[in-house]
């Protein structure tokens, strides 16, 4: 499947990109995070277990077991700090 990936705030800066199209073979958010960690460097560091970040799928907050569908919009970002 192909995913539209979006990165925000500190993670956008660390990953050096705001968005990308990603070809992905897995099924869930957990699978996706594993694939991104395998890129190493900032990806492995920021998305490591125990680090604080959020994932949204099609603009709804998701959990590791959230299933992904072709053309889903997936955003990864730090805990929010508005208000």
């Amino acid at each position: 499947m192909t995913l539209r990936m979006l990165y925000f705030a500190r993670l956008r800066e660390r990953f050096g990109q705001a968005e990308e199209c990603l070809a992905f073979d897995g099924a869930t958010v957990a699978d996706l995070l594993g694939a991104l960690r395998a890129r190493g460097d900032a990806w492995a560091e920021e998305l490591a277990a125990g680090r604080s970040f959020r994932v949204a799928v099609n603009q709804e907050l998701a959990t590791p077991d959230t299933r992904l569908a072709d053309r889903a919009e997936v955003a990864i970002f730090p805990p929010v700090t508005g208000g």
Partner: peptide, 8 residues
């Protein structure tokens, strides 16, 4: 809003 709205 402080914990769920995506602002940074």
């Amino acid at each position: 809003l402080k914990t769920r709205a995506p602002f940074w």
